[in-house]
Protein backbone atom coordinates (compact mmCIF):
# COMPACT_ATOMS: atom_id res chain seq x y z
CA UNK A 1 0.00 0.00 0.00
CA UNK A 2 1.26 3.38 -0.90
CA UNK A 3 0.35 6.17 1.45
CA UNK A 4 1.07 9.33 -0.40
CA UNK A 5 -0.70 11.64 1.94
CA UNK A 6 0.45 11.69 5.51
CA UNK A 7 0.58 14.28 8.24
CA UNK A 8 3.07 13.93 11.06
CA UNK A 9 1.66 14.59 14.49
CA UNK A 10 4.09 16.26 16.84
CA UNK A 11 2.29 19.23 18.27
CA UNK A 12 -1.36 19.92 18.94
CA UNK A 13 -1.44 22.23 15.92
CA UNK A 14 -0.77 19.25 13.63
CA UNK A 15 -4.22 17.91 14.44
CA UNK A 16 -5.67 20.82 12.48
CA UNK A 17 -3.37 20.09 9.55
CA UNK A 18 -4.49 16.45 9.51
CA UNK A 19 -8.13 17.48 9.57
CA UNK A 20 -7.57 19.89 6.70
CA UNK A 21 -5.84 17.33 4.50
CA UNK A 22 -8.40 14.65 5.33
CA UNK A 23 -11.26 16.99 4.53
CA UNK A 24 -9.73 18.00 1.19
CA UNK A 25 -9.25 14.38 0.19
CA UNK A 26 -12.75 13.37 1.24
CA UNK A 27 -14.29 16.30 -0.60
CA UNK A 28 -12.42 15.24 -3.75
CA UNK A 29 -13.69 11.70 -3.35
CA UNK A 30 -17.19 13.14 -3.27
CA UNK A 31 -18.25 12.99 0.39
CA UNK A 32 -21.02 15.39 1.42
CA UNK A 33 -20.91 17.92 4.25
CA UNK A 34 -22.11 15.56 6.95
CA UNK A 35 -19.61 12.84 6.10
CA UNK A 36 -16.80 15.37 5.75
CA UNK A 37 -17.58 16.55 9.27
CA UNK A 38 -17.61 12.96 10.54
CA UNK A 39 -14.31 12.18 8.86
CA UNK A 40 -12.77 15.33 10.33
CA UNK A 41 -13.99 14.33 13.80
CA UNK A 42 -12.48 10.88 13.38
CA UNK A 43 -9.16 12.41 12.40
CA UNK A 44 -9.24 14.70 15.43
CA UNK A 45 -9.86 11.81 17.79
CA UNK A 46 -7.10 9.66 16.32
CA UNK A 47 -4.59 12.48 16.04
CA UNK A 48 -5.32 13.76 19.52
CA UNK A 49 -4.77 10.30 20.97
CA UNK A 50 -1.38 10.18 19.26
CA UNK A 51 -0.52 13.64 20.57
CA UNK A 52 -1.69 12.83 24.11
CA UNK A 53 -0.61 9.23 24.62
CA UNK A 54 2.18 8.48 22.16
CA UNK A 55 3.72 11.93 21.76
CA UNK A 56 4.40 11.57 18.06
CA UNK A 57 3.10 9.59 15.14
CA UNK A 58 1.35 10.11 11.84
CA UNK A 59 -2.05 10.04 10.21
CA UNK A 60 -2.22 8.84 6.59
CA UNK A 61 -4.99 8.91 4.01
CA UNK A 62 -5.75 6.72 1.07
CA UNK A 63 -8.51 7.10 -1.48
CA UNK A 64 -10.17 3.76 -2.11
CA UNK A 65 -11.76 2.78 -5.34
CA UNK A 66 -13.50 -0.53 -5.65
CA UNK A 67 -15.48 -1.81 -8.63
CA UNK A 68 -18.62 -0.12 -7.52
CA UNK A 69 -17.74 1.98 -4.52
CA UNK A 70 -15.44 4.73 -3.40
CA UNK A 71 -14.17 5.50 0.03
CA UNK A 72 -11.39 6.74 2.24
CA UNK A 73 -9.04 4.87 4.51
CA UNK A 74 -7.43 6.65 7.44
CA UNK A 75 -4.52 5.04 9.24
CA UNK A 76 -3.12 6.48 12.46
CA UNK A 77 0.25 5.05 13.48
CA UNK A 78 2.57 5.69 16.38
CA UNK A 79 5.30 3.93 18.32
CA UNK A 80 4.05 4.94 21.71
CA UNK A 81 3.21 2.80 24.73
CA UNK A 82 0.40 0.84 23.03
CA UNK A 83 -3.05 0.13 24.37
CA UNK A 84 -3.12 -2.63 26.98
CA UNK A 85 -6.74 -3.60 27.10
CA UNK A 86 -8.38 -2.82 23.78
CA UNK A 87 -11.74 -4.33 24.69
CA UNK A 88 -11.97 -2.07 27.68
CA UNK A 89 -11.06 1.00 25.66
CA UNK A 90 -13.78 0.16 23.14
CA UNK A 91 -16.45 0.03 25.84
CA UNK A 92 -18.85 2.93 25.95
CA UNK A 93 -18.36 5.22 28.87
CA UNK A 94 -14.72 4.27 29.40
CA UNK A 95 -13.01 7.35 27.90
CA UNK A 96 -11.39 9.74 30.30
CA UNK A 97 -13.53 12.52 28.90
CA UNK A 98 -16.48 10.47 30.08
CA UNK A 99 -19.91 10.66 28.56
CA UNK A 100 -19.03 12.91 25.64
CA UNK A 101 -19.61 10.04 23.28
CA UNK A 102 -16.34 10.62 21.46
CA UNK A 103 -13.12 8.70 21.86
CA UNK A 104 -12.50 5.42 20.09
CA UNK A 105 -16.06 4.01 20.43
CA UNK A 106 -17.26 7.25 18.79
CA UNK A 107 -14.78 6.78 15.96
CA UNK A 108 -16.08 3.28 15.42
CA UNK A 109 -19.62 4.63 15.15
CA UNK A 110 -18.63 7.32 12.67
CA UNK A 111 -16.82 4.93 10.34
CA UNK A 112 -17.85 1.83 8.38
CA UNK A 113 -14.96 -0.33 9.47
CA UNK A 114 -12.52 -0.08 12.33
CA UNK A 115 -9.42 -2.00 13.30
CA UNK A 116 -6.74 -1.65 15.99
CA UNK A 117 -3.42 -3.40 16.19
CA UNK A 118 -1.48 -2.48 19.28
CA UNK A 119 1.53 -3.95 21.01
CA UNK A 120 2.63 -2.85 24.42
CA UNK A 121 5.79 -0.74 24.36
CA UNK A 122 5.82 -0.86 20.54
CA UNK A 123 2.94 1.22 19.36
CA UNK A 124 -0.51 1.40 17.93
CA UNK A 125 -2.01 1.35 14.47
CA UNK A 126 -5.64 2.24 14.04
CA UNK A 127 -7.14 1.86 10.60
CA UNK A 128 -10.64 2.99 9.63
CA UNK A 129 -12.61 3.10 6.40
CA UNK A 130 -15.59 5.18 5.37
CA UNK A 131 -17.46 4.37 2.17
CA UNK A 132 -19.23 6.87 -0.01
CA UNK A 133 -22.94 6.23 -0.34
Amino acid sequence: MDFQSCVNIKKEWDIVGARQLGRDISRKIGFGTVDQARIATTISELARNIYLYAGTGKVCFEALEDMNKKGIRIVATDDGPGIQDISQVMEDGFTTSGGLGAGLPGVKRLMDSFDIVSTEEEGTEISVVKWLR
Binding site: T41, G93, G99, L100, G101, A102, P105, G106, R109
Partner: peptide, 8 residues
Amino acid sequence: SYGLAYQE
Protein backbone atom coordinates in the same frame (compact mmCIF):
# COMPACT_ATOMS: atom_id res chain seq x y z
CA SER B 1 -20.33 15.46 19.10
CA TYR B 2 -23.93 15.78 20.20
CA GLY B 3 -24.85 13.07 17.73
CA LEU B 4 -22.17 10.79 19.11
CA ALA B 5 -23.19 11.44 22.68
CA TYR B 6 -26.76 10.61 21.76
CA GLN B 7 -25.76 7.31 20.18
CA GLU B 8 -23.65 6.43 23.18
